[in-house]
Design a protein around this nucleic acid. Structure first.
Length: 766
DNA sequence: CGGACGATCCTTTTT
DNA sequence: GGATCGTCCG
């Protein structure tokens, strides 16, 4: 152990050997935070702490796996294997399966993914006859998810003035009812969604103190990585577990908080001191990853944000390359320029393809780079987007597996009741669902109910339903006898999936068969791997693993020496020698969705910070002046973030050439141009978004506002404003006091509306 | 009932 | 550009 400690700098070592009690490790980008966590765990183990007494929560399963391996090298695999290490979701799914009966679920409950949740919400909306396009499943789900992450029940939701007002002003006043129905349907289906895994853990700990006490006693040490991206629900789990002993070590960086859309509360890291006043603070400020230029440029970016914990990240590596900005006329050209530049850099430095990453804001951007790379015969791998497990043929097969384990799983049942086609159509399904609703049963319970025949189906339909039911019953009866692999093989043939797939002789059909084969192989590997490790290898376990996979987790072995393409979000925690951050344009990065609020822009800026700090040696930024969006091309201006970078870190050789073309390019974003002022070397700031100049400095203590709406402090009667949905209008009245100011706005096309400023996304035009 | 074909909506980001 | 949705017809 001693030799490992000597590899650390003073701050790192202090954090590793800190005794019992709470510690907060503020870890700047690239400051060796994983190393600290790894060694701290190894250190605890070397002090004689049993591995199963250590709970370490990471952001991805991959991070957990790698950390386990590294710890295994130090203390031995046998020991490392018994650590409780994984994502919040997978650890607590595991615990919930054991405790399921305490919270009214079975131990083989299904985990609904986002698509399942949306589909369920959709059918609830339909059933409630909520017409109008305001009720979009995705939007409703995010509202419900937000509530769950704040531990707000449907009843509490209905009492929550803020949520109700927000819903009303978005024309979706019935969300709370949908929420209520959704929770009920999930219970009926013996299913939990992602948020439920955390929510029900809290419910379990609240309602079953004896159970909480057991885990409190088991987990003597709790460690949390990426603490800045935990939500309230996760925060509370950690707090409860550590309630008695306060042996909690959290690691994070407020500057890298990029998941607020998922309910993450940056406040968790800031409030640590309140929950654990006796806490020890460790700051890791030396960056070992990147050159000085990259670190300093990143610092200059993040300094544009108001609220942050003070820290000075520095690098002692060489100054290194300046940051280059590639300016392209179109998205096609952007792809071409980036790939051209990549080829050059690779030849100049003799580096491999795996040293390069292309990072973008949205998955949709990947296509253009895939194309450019393919044309140049450059190998690449792409993360995210349509993952293997989201393909239709895979989801179909998985649905059968899910049914075998939990036939009440309504989403799975609806998916396959008529796949392969067996003559059970929409009419039949509608009637089954109606019967289920009336009798408060799941679809499966209706199907297997003795009085199914009294529902008035004709004999043919009854027969078809009966053979489907016995097919599934056959699978169910095999669950206890077969392992995951045997059962899957059985299901593929018996269900008729294989036969169905072989009907299709096209190329895509061939690919689908290969995919299914791949899944079967995956099940076999899983089955064997688990058996060798002496673990249970049932279908339940396989399904759980599959549903909690992150896209980083599904890396295959033939991914050597390839350029990496991924969103910035998925690049979190990773590093590459050469990084391209592409699509650095207004409306794309920062996303147009974040234009309404200061906090949203700050989060986008943190995302930009994360992107730049992934690089070890070189960062290249690129933007396009026009790109295809929704099938037609639209124009763009360079991102305001370019002007956040101190110009002394920018390589402007190429830029100055482009300035001329920039100034002659007409600007299409009227009135509220941004970093379109790229002339002047990104230096000039757009006053509208330069918050620091307008707001008095709040001092060294970070302050985080919680306003959700736009900055409308300058609003007065007579102002022209623009609303996302209602369009342009004029303010005719203002009443109430901040933060509850209500404005009456007369819209040109939508008439007069009363809007609460903190919720309405009003843009002041004049 | 099921497949085919246009219309329509859309896009952040993910466990 | 592309996935999803509703409608139409065999």
């Amino acid at each position: 152990m001693q030799q490992y400690l000597s590899q650390l700098n003073e701050a790192q070592r202090a954090a590793v050997v800190a005794g019992d009690g709470p510690s907060l490790v503020i870890a700047g980008a690239g400051s060796g935070k994983t190393r600290v966590l790894t060694y701290r765990i190894a250190y605890l183990l070397s002090k004689g702490v049993e591995p199963w007494r250590i709970l370490a929560l990471t952001f991805t399963n991959k991070a957990a796996r790698e950390m386990k391996e590294r710890i295994g090298v130090i203390v031995g695999d046998e020991v490392a294997r018994n650590l409780w290490m994984g994502t919040f979701h997978s650890i607590f799914a595991r615990i919930l399966r054991k405790e399921a009966v305490n919270i009214g679920f079975s131990s083989s409950f299904t985990i609904y993914d986002t698509a399942d949740s949306k589909s369920l919400i959709k059918s609830i909306i339909k059933d409630m006859k909520l017409v109008g396009k305001e009720y979009k499943p995705g939007l409703i789900l995010s509202r419900i998810s937000g509530a769950k992450n704040d531990l707000v029940t449907p009843a509490a939701y209905a009492r929550d003035e803020h949520r109700m007002i927000a819903d009303r002003s978005a024309n979706v006043p019935k969300v709370h009812e949908i929420f209520q129905r959704y929770v009920k349907e999930c219970r009926k289906a013996d299913a939990m969604d992602f948020d439920d895994l955390l929510l029900y853990t809290n419910v379990l700990f609240r309602d079953h103190p004896e159970s909480l006490a057991r885990y409190q006693q088991q987990f003597r040490y709790v460690l949390v990585d990426e603490y800045q991206d935990t939500n309230f629900s996760q925060y509370l789990i950690v707090r409860k577990l550590a309630e008695q002993h306060h042996n909690v070590c959290v690691v994070g960086d407020d500057a890298q908080s990029i998941y607020s859309f998922r309910g993450a509360k940056i406040e968790n890291i800031l409030n640590f001191r309140n929950d654990y006043p006796e806490y020890k603070l460790f700051k890791l400020e030396q960056n070992y990853r990147s050159t000085q230029t990259i670190v300093n440029a990143a610092n200059s970016i993040i300094s544009n944000n108001k609220g942050q914990i003070k820290k000075v990240v520095f690098s002692e590596k060489e100054p290194g390359d300046k940051i280059k900005v590639l300016s392209a006329i179109s998205d096609m050209e952007e792809g071409f320029l980036v790939v051209k530049n990549l080829i050059t850099q690779r030849l100049e430095n003799g580096s491999s393809y795996a040293d390069f990453a292309i990072l973008y804001r949205t998955n949709a951007q990947s296509r253009i780079f895939e194309e450019a790379l393919r044309k140049n015969n450059i190998p690449y791998k792409i993360y995210g987007g349509l993952s293997f497990y989201q393909r239709k043929e895979i989801k179909d097969l998985l649905a059968y597996l899910r049914l075998a384990v939990n036939p009440r799983d309504g989403e799975a049942l609806k998916r396959v009741i008529n796949y392969p086609a067996r003559g059970i159509g929409k009419t039949t399904l509608d009637r089954l669902e109606a019967a289920a609703a009336v009798n408060d049963l799941s679809l499966w319970e209706v199907l297997s109910h003795p009085s199914l025949s009294s529902l008035g189906f004709n004999a043919g339909t009854l027969k078809k339903l009966g053979s489907f039911t016995s097919l599934i019953n056959g699978f169910i009866s095999q669950v206890p006898n077969m392992d995951a692999y045997e059962l899957t093989s059985e299901i593929v043939t018996q269900s008729g999936i294989l036969k169905e797939l072989h009907q299709d002789k096209s190329n895509e059909g061939q690919t689908r068969i290969e995919n299914v084969d791949e899944l079967i192989n995956g099940v076999r590997d899983f089955s064997e791997g688990r058996r060798e490790a002496g673990l249970e290898n049932t279908l339940v376990h396989f399904l759980e693993e599959v549903s909690l996979l992150t896209d980083q987790d599904s890396e295959t072995s033939d991914d050597n020496d390839k350029v990496t393409l991924m969103t910035i979000h998925s690049a979190k925690g990773l590093e590459f020698p050469y990084v391209y951050v592409v699509g650095v344009e207004e409306g794309l990065f920062p996303s147009s969705m974040s234009n309404y609020s200061e906090q949203a822009i700050e989060e986008e800026r943190r995302l930009f910070y994360v992107a730049v700090t992934r690089a070890e040696k070189n960062v290249t930024l690129s933007y396009a002046r026009s790109r295809f969006k929704y099938g037609e091309h639209s124009f763009a201006t360079p991102s305001r973030f370019l002007s956040d970078i101190d110009s002394k870190y920018l390589d402007d050789s190429e830029v100055s050439l482009k300035q001329r073309s920039a100034s002659t390019t007409p600007r299409f974003e009227s009135g509220r141009s941004s970093a379109g002022s790229i002339a002047g070397r990104f230096k000039r700031k757009t006053p509208e978004f330069n918050y620091r100049e307008r707001t008095s400095d709040s001092g060294p203590v970070p302050r985080f506002g919680n306003r959700a709406g736009a900055d409308t402090s300058g609003l007065a009667i007579g102002c022209k404003v623009e609303h996302e949905r209602f369009g342009c209008g004029e303010v005719v009245a203002l009443e109430g006091v901040a933060p509850n100011v209500k404005a009456t706005v007369s819209f040109e096309n939508a008439g007069q509306k009363q809007l609460l400023l903190k919720f309405a996304k009003l843009k002041i035009l004049k």
